[in-house]
């Protein structure tokens, strides 16, 4: 066993996890700021400069809150729920290529935890576990609102997972690979996939919103009908996990969309700058990060702009529109590719 390899991977993993958590924390700040701007308010501004220390205060508060587990609940599952949600959120990032190869002391270090040839399937697999976190939490609480919310959540997430999976087929048709690294590398040497797959991207985007339970699809937590939904009974860091997991998921889906459709860590002209490879890699990471931030902003922008869907509308959109659309997209893509061959 190569110890250096393990150390290197552990460092990368800690980096990625820290990044995810950090981004998630500051997303809460970002969310409130965006909301403030859109609603013409100031937003958080007391803790630190422009309220930048607000997320830390919030996190600390969650740590020191009293932990309440209702007597009627299923204790083990009650704790398991948020743990699963968090765990799943932390696991998705493993196959996303954060950048190209860094060369340190003669070692080639890829900025990707694991480059496996079924990267996309891995993501799907892990993401579909996410629904258990919500289901377990909702059911274990033994609260009518929570239960309803969790059932809703499950129903919604699995419905949109279909369209999500279908929308990617068209993309895979011309990448011919399930490895995210390959997909990004292909875009590095050609056009970004968004050019070929505008429809696919839109479907993916909508489904990503639904998967993350983001407005306009945030029915599971619909605070004004379900009192907060599946995490109604949660407090302290368990609640924090649910909230964090949601933001991490947002972050990862942004990264995924950036990688799949917007070239990932590549940016136009990156191979003709003539800079040192390590520098190019770092620039690439920065480029990816900018794309991710733009997506995150988009998530928030939508949240404060579009009202929540009704449940039947949500389901009809998912089943009756997204799925056929994805199929049509797939067939058209296939026909065009074959016709041009």
């Amino acid at each position: 066993m190569d110890w250096v390899f393990i150390v290197e991977k552990l460092a990368l993993i800690s980096g990625v996890l820290a990044l995810s958590l950090g981004v998630a924390m500051y997303s809460t700040w970002g969310e409130r700021k965006v909301a403030a701007i859109i609603q013409d308010r100031r937003g958080p501004n007391r803790a630190g400069f422009m309220g930048l220390l607000q997320p830390l205060a919030d996190g600390g508060k969650l740590f020191f809150k009293e932990e309440i587990i209702p007597t009627n609940s299923h204790r083990f599952l009650f704790i398991l729920g948020p743990s699963v949600a968090m765990l799943v959120a932390c696991m998705t990032s493993a196959v996303i290529p954060w950048g190209d190869v860094l060369t340190i002391a003669g070692r080639q270090i890829p900025l990707q935890v694991a480059d496996i040839n079924i990267g996309i399937l891995y993501i799907f697999g892990v993401v579909s576990l996410g629904v258990y976190g919500i289901m377990l939490g909702g059911w274990a609480s033994n609260n009518k609102f929570s239960l309803l919310a969790s059932v809703r959540a499950a129903s919604q997430i699995i419905s949109y997972e279909l369209a999500l999976g279908l929308s990617l087929i068209a993309l895979l048709m011309f990448t011919g690979s399930l490895s995210l690294k390959d997909i990004v590398e292909q875009q590095r040497h050609g056009l970004w996939n968004i050019v070929y797959q505008p429809l696919g991207f839109i479907i993916f985007l909508v489904c990503a919103f639904a998967e993350c339970n983001r407005t306009p699809f945030d029915l599971p937590e619909a605070e004004n009908e379900l009192n907060g939904g599946y995490h109604l009974e949660y407090s302290s860091m368990k609640l924090g996990f649910y909230l964090f997991a949601e933001y991490i998921n947002m972050f990862i889906s942004s990264a995924l969309m950036a990688s799949l459709y917007f070239g990932g860590y590549s940016f136009p002209g990156m191979d003709s700058l003539g800079l040192a490879p390590n520098l190019v890699t770092i620039l690439g990471f920065v480029a990816l990060f900018i794309k991710i931030l733009l997506f995150l902003f988009f998530f928030m922008w939508v949240r404060w702009t579009i009202p929540r869907f009704r449940y039947d509308q949500l389901m009809r959109l998912g089943w009756n529109i997204m799925i056929p659309l994805a199929l049509v997209n797939m067939l058209i893509t296939g026909a065009i590719i074959l016709a041009r061959q």
């Binding site: 990625v16 996890l17 696991m91 694991a114 496996i116």
Partner: peptide, 11 residues
């Protein structure tokens, strides 16, 4: 898949 296991352990 080994790094994934590592990440799982970490998470």
């Amino acid at each position: 898949y080994f790094p994934i296991v590592l990440q799982l352990v970490a998470a």
